[in-house]
Simulated assay, not measured.
Amino acid sequence: MAIENQTTQAIVWSRRRRVASVDIVHDLAAAETVWRSLERPNHSATPYQRFDFLAAWQRQVGHRAGLSPFLVIARDDVGRPLGLLPLASKTVLGVRCASFMGGNHSTFNMGLWEREFAATATELDLDALMALLAARDEADVLVLRWQPTNWGDLQNPLRLLPHEPSTVHCPVRTIEPGATPESLISKSLRRRLQRKERKLQPLAGYRYHIASDDADITRLLDWFFQVKPQRMAQQKLPYVFAEPGVQEFIRAACITRLANGGRAIEIHALECDKEVIAIFAGVSDGHRFSMMFTTYTMSQNAKFSPGLILMRDIIDHFTDQNYRAFDFGVGSHDYKRLFCKDWEPIFDSLIPLSVRGRFAIGAMSAVNEAKRLVKSNPALLDLAQNLRSRFRL
C-alpha cells in the first residue's frame, strides 16, 4: 500500500510538473526557432498560427494598432517546449490584455502544441500554465477568441480552461476517407453549376488555377483590391481591407513561400484572358483548407454564379488531394451552407490573471452575451446591420 501511494503521488507530481516553466517573449525573431519547431508534422497547429502568417500580420497590422508581441512558451522540467501561444498585448483602460495575433483575419485561433502533450493534456496542466503566467505579472487578462474545440484528430488543450460559446459560427465540411468530389456536392447543384458554367466556357482562356508565381499573385491582388471595395459598398458593408497595414499584410503573406513550396495564403482563381472572374484566398495545411477572403467580377459574367463555380472547383481540387475538411470562413451565409453541412464548434476563453483582470472579464462577458442575443433575434440583428451600414460601426 505504501508503494502504491508513493507511485500515485509520483504520477500526480509528474502531471503537475509537466508544465514546469513559461517564457514570455516580446520579439518575433527571438521566438522564431521554437515557433517553427512547433509547426512540424508531429505537432498540432492551424495554418493561421504559422510564423510566416502571423509575423506578416504583426509587422504590418499589429504594430500599427499598438499591439506588442506577447509570445508564451510553455516548457517541461527539462526545458523542452510543449507549446506556444502566439499572443499580442495592449493596455486598454488600464487593463493589460493579451489576445491571439491575427485579429479578424484569422478564422481559427489556437496554440501550437507538441502532439503528445495536446493529446493528453489535463486541467492540471492548463491550470499550471495559467498559474505560472499569472505569477509573471505581465498581463491582467487573456482574451482568447475564435478557438476550435479540436484540430484534426487532437483536442485543443485550451478547451480545458473555462470557456463559453463564441458569438461567431463557421460552416465546415468533413471529407470522409474514400470520398469522391461527386459525393460531396449534390447532383442537382452540380448540374445547376454546369449549366451556368457553359456560359463562361466559351470565353477565351477560361480556366481555374492556383496562383503560383509572384507576378500572378500581384496581378490578382491588384484586381481584388480594386473590386472588393465596390462589392462591399454595394452590400453596404464596411471595407475592412482599408484598415492600416491590412493590404500590406495580405500581399506579404500571399508572396511568402513556405518550406513545402506553398504560400502562407494561397489564391485560387477563375479567369479568362479578358478579366479575372472570381478569386478565393485561404490557408491550407495538407489536411484542411480554410477560406479567408473572396470576391467576383463586376461585369455581366457575375450573373453566372462564378463564386459558386469556383467553390466547386476548390472542393474538387482538395478532395483529389485527400484533404479531410474544408470551410469557407465564419458566417452563416446561404452560399456556404450549400457546400458545408456541419458547424465547427468555436469557443472563447476570458482568463483573469490578476484582480484587475477579474473585473474586466465581467464587462467582456456582458458584451458577448449582448452579441449572442442580437444574433439570435432576427429583428435585433436587422437593426444592428442597418445601424452598422449607416454609421460604419
Rank of each mutant, 00 (worst) to 15 (best):
D285F: 01
E344V: 04
R64S: 12
L161T: 07
D153E: 13
I265N: 01
G205Y: 02
A30M: 04
G178I: 07
E243V: 01
A55D: 12
N109K: 09
C170S: 10
K236S: 15
S212Q: 12
R191Q: 14
F117V: 12
T174C: 06
T319E: 01
K236A: 15
G79L: 11
N156I: 10
P177F: 09
R16C: 05
V374A: 09
K196T: 02
A379R: 13
G102V: 10
N386Q: 15
D273E: 14
P202F: 01
T297F: 07
S99T: 15
W57L: 02
Q201E: 08
D313W: 08
A30C: 00
L154S: 15
C170E: 02
A10D: 11
K90S: 12
E369L: 10
S354Y: 10
S37C: 05
N5P: 00
V240N: 03
R96M: 11
E138W: 02
A135K: 05
Y208T: 11
Q155G: 12
Q234P: 00
N156G: 06
D214R: 11
W113M: 08
G307C: 07
R219W: 00
G307P: 05
F304I: 07
A135E: 09
A121G: 09
W113I: 12
P157S: 05
K375G: 08
A360P: 08
W13S: 14
I314H: 04
L38N: 06
V72R: 04
N386F: 05
D382H: 11
H26K: 10
A10F: 09
T174A: 12
M311W: 04
R198T: 09
V168N: 06
Y239C: 13
S332D: 13
T107W: 00
D216I: 03
E4V: 13
S21V: 03
D77R: 15
S365N: 10
V330L: 01
L158N: 03
D320K: 14
G94T: 13
G262H: 04
R195L: 12
G62D: 11
Q9F: 06
A20G: 06
H287Y: 09
P171K: 04
Y296K: 07
Q60N: 15
E164K: 07
A302E: 14
W151T: 08
M101E: 05
M101C: 08
Q247K: 12
L54D: 05
Q147F: 02
C340Y: 02
V143Q: 11
D213W: 03
P171F: 02
S349I: 04
G178P: 03
Q226S: 14
G329T: 08
A134I: 02
A119G: 13
I175P: 03
L82H: 03
I3E: 10
G103V: 09
A242Y: 00
S188F: 01
T91G: 08
N301T: 09
I351P: 06
A252W: 00
C340M: 09
E369P: 01
M232W: 01
L220G: 00
D342M: 04
M1R: 10
A10Q: 14
L237F: 00
T33Q: 08
K199R: 14
Q49V: 15
E138N: 03
